[in-house]
């Protein structure tokens, strides 16, 4: 039977790091990336992200869905941003620039004039955007595949989250295979009553309503068993005070190194950005030259 748990250990260098160190690393790196629109800096992060990705030894089969999703999302955003709404968040890109393509048209009958202009800056901005987004998404894409779900509770508790909240994480993982099985059973039970999800009649309302026979039994059943689970936890002294986690995480020297490294990157970013005023949008001259040659 299909169960949606994808974790299997890959025994790679990446998985030897303490999960807390990796979360801290990922968040600090993301914060740093967001400061840059200069592709020269972004390529540095792009390189780090993809180093992590390749060190994780993920197979194409595992990540295919993720990449498809990321590529569709990025291309949609970049396309809309660059071509249709023709702007970015950076002043240098929105105002002025060097036109590479201009298209003027008049809508027949109505007489509206359409002016569409694409500048070299906007094209380069779009390219920078792709690099930046790939750096961020590929960094986070790796996490779920390389972190043992049984460590989540102790990880978040070790990062200062209250024990109760951290335990919700562990408990959620405990319920997933059970609920997935329940979902399959309900699906079969309704099919046995002639229910066919793909045969949709009627308007929007009835189309959406069509999932009710699936989600209501699964949800209500889960709520009823929740009452029992809460009793079972109370009976074993949950939430009576401080809590031990028998799964123990220990930082090693390389975890410290990773955290210090990411801390340094963030601090340097702040200096570069605010102190030196570097890292803003930058376009190489040769790129502009390309279009001059065409003309």
């Amino acid at each position: 039977m299909l169960v949606p748990l994808t974790f299997r250990p890959h025994h790679t260098i990446i998985e030897r790091f303490d999960p807390r160190a990796r979360w801290i690393f990922s968040f600090l790196m993301m914060t740093a990336i967001v400061y840059y629109w200069d592709i020269r800096f972004l390529l540095f992060f792009f390189f780090i992200s993809f180093t992590q990705y390749f060190l994780a030894h993920l197979t194409w089969k595992e990540t295919r869905r993720g990449w498809t999703f990321i590529i569709i999302l990025i291309s949609m955003m970049v396309l809309i941003n660059t071509i249709i709404t023709s702007a970015g968040t950076i002043g240098a890109v929105t105002q002025g620039g060097h036109d590479v393509f201009i298209w003027n048209a008049t809508v027949p009958w109505v007489g509206w004039n359409i002016h569409f202009g694409l500048t070299a800056e906007r094209l380069w901005f779009g390219f920078t955007q792709i690099v930046r987004l790939l750096a961020i998404t590929s960094m986070f894409l790796v996490l779920p595949f390389t972190m043992d779900p049984r460590l989540y509770g102790s990880t978040f508790s070790g990062m200062g989250l209250p024990a109760r909240l951290a335990y919700s994480f562990d408990l959620a993982f405990r319920f997933i295979p059970t609920l997935a099985r329940d979902f399959n059973v309900t699906m079969d039970a309704q099919k046995a009553r002639g229910y066919e999800m793909d045969k949709v009649k009627g308007g929007l309302f009835s189309q959406v309503k069509k999932v009710a026979p699936l989600i209501i039994p699964v949800t209500m059943n889960a709520i009823l068993s929740g009452e029992d689970i809460a009793d079972a936890m109370d009976l074993r002294c949950f939430d009576t005070g401080k809590r031990t986690w028998i799964i123990k995480l220990t930082y090693r020297w390389y975890d410290y190194a990773l955290m210090i490294f990411s801390g340094c990157v963030l601090i340097s970013t702040l200096i570069i950005n605010h102190g030196l005023n570097l890292g803003n949008f930058w376009m190489p001259d040769w790129f502009l030259g390309l279009f001059h040659n065409i003309k």
């Binding site: 949606p4 959620a172 993982f173 319920f175 609920l179 009452e227």
Partner: peptide, 18 residues
Amino acid sequence: FGTREVVFAAIGAALYGV
């Protein structure tokens, strides 16, 4: 946010995921 809430938060999240 007592035991019941911990449990239902976990169940809700798992349901959403599933």
